[in-house]
């Protein structure tokens, strides 16, 4: 006896999707405005000055560079978690109806996944690549289980043989890096390199049906709620204006003004200092200027795996970079370029 169920839920789901699609482009715009607000230390006149001179293209490129690794991460993680949810439920369509995560995974075209994998391979740091391989292997296995549930031999190959083989090859390849990371005390890098090949073969199938929603839907919801905060925290710290040091001679000796160079016009050089004050330096007093590297260097790991530094992505490795010299310009440290000796005192 079949029961006709009139399901009104798709319309509610579409309404939710509409709101989501509205909020999605607004988020980067809010980020850009907040970045300027944070840079001006919440002072309106400073922010108006910055808005005059900060180029939107510069900020958008800073946003893209800061976020380019995160977009494929979101796509691949959602596809994996959704795939596990779909495969664990008795009816995939029912799971898709009940959960936005399942719907995303069900409707995601394969070319989007391939593009995300390619982008991630280029932009992720080397120590995240085992995790990328784990996600790829999981997605392949889950897609095979979902679309061809009957063919046992193909499924054995796709969900057990291929992941285990790839995991073993990967472990052999990164083994020197794991050993070096453990001896240097960097447990996070060592875990990132050793856990994905060991767990990759395990994620290619269903979980117990009752726990499926708890293990996949709710972590995805929590990650979606936390993602704007995390992305905001990462982006708000990214530099927007060039960090520079200006050596000035205002009659009372030579001193160095450090901060972010806003603009140079025919009468004055404008610098936004570290505390948030803006100084206008007459051009006659400026002796020299220099560009300074970022003061807050990101966590720099000295570990390499077969010659590839673990915190470098393929893009950084392939594209030319400025050679890093050990010398730091003394102006960036606040001291004059030519050391002045004062008479008498002590020396």
């Amino acid at each position: 006896m079949s029961v006709e169920v009139i399901d009104r839920r798709p319309r509610l789901r579409r309404a939710q999707l509409n709101w989501l699609l509205t909020a999605l482009p607004a988020f980067p715009l809010v980020l850009l405005v907040l970045r300027l607000w944070y840079l001006s230390r919440q002072d309106l006149p400073t922010m108006l000055l910055l808005v005059q001179y900060v180029s939107p293209l510069g900020m958008i490129s800073a946003l893209i560079i800061a976020l380019i690794g995160i977009i494929p991460a979101i796509v691949l993680v959602l596809r994996t978690l959704g795939g596990i949810l779909l495969v664990s439920s008795p009816d995939p369509n029912e799971a898709a109806r009940r959960s936005l995560l399942g719907l995303t995974a069900l409707r995601m075209p394969d070319w989007v996944v391939v593009l995300a994998v390619g982008l991630a391979g280029f932009t992720w740091q080397m120590r995240m690549l085992p995790a990328l391989l784990m996600l790829v292997v999981a997605i392949l296995g889950l897609t095979a289980v979902q679309r061809f549930p009957g063919e046992r031999r193909m499924l054995v190959v796709a969900t057990l043989a291929v992941p285990i083989a790839l995991g073993v090859v990967e472990l052999i390849w990164v083994w020197p890096g794991i050993r070096v990371a453990l001896s240097a005390g960097e447990t996070s890098t060592a875990l990132l390199l050793v856990v994905p090949p060991l767990l990759g073969w395990l994620l290619t199938g269903p979980v117990p049906p009752r726990a499926a929603r708890l293990a996949t839907h709710w972590p995805a919801v929590l990650a979606t709620l936390a993602a704007p905060i995390v992305v905001g925290a990462l982006f708000l710290r990214a530099p927007v204006l060039p960090n520079s040091a200006v050596e000035i001679d205002d009659g009372a000796g030579i001193r160095v003004v450090r901060g972010q160079l806003v603009t140079v016009d025919d009468t004055a050089t404008t610098v936004l200092q570290r505390g948030g004050d803006v100084v206008f330096i007459p051009n006659a007093q400026v002796r020299s200027k220099t560009l300074c590297p970022e003061p807050v260097r990101a966590q720099h790991s000295r570990i390499t795996v077969r010659g590839w530094a673990v915190d470098e992505s393929a893009l950084e490795w392939a594209a030319p970079t400025r050679p890093v010299t050990g010398e730091v310009d003394p102006r960036c440290l606040g001291r004059a370029l030519e050391p002045t000796t004062t008479k008498g005192v002590g020396r």
Partner: peptide, 25 residues
Amino acid sequence: SFGASLAPWRLAGIGVVLVLVLAFS
């Protein structure tokens, strides 16, 4: 579905991955 015999271990594996991701971030 294929692979259902490993389902509880899979759940434990996902739990381990989630905990590691939280700690790392």
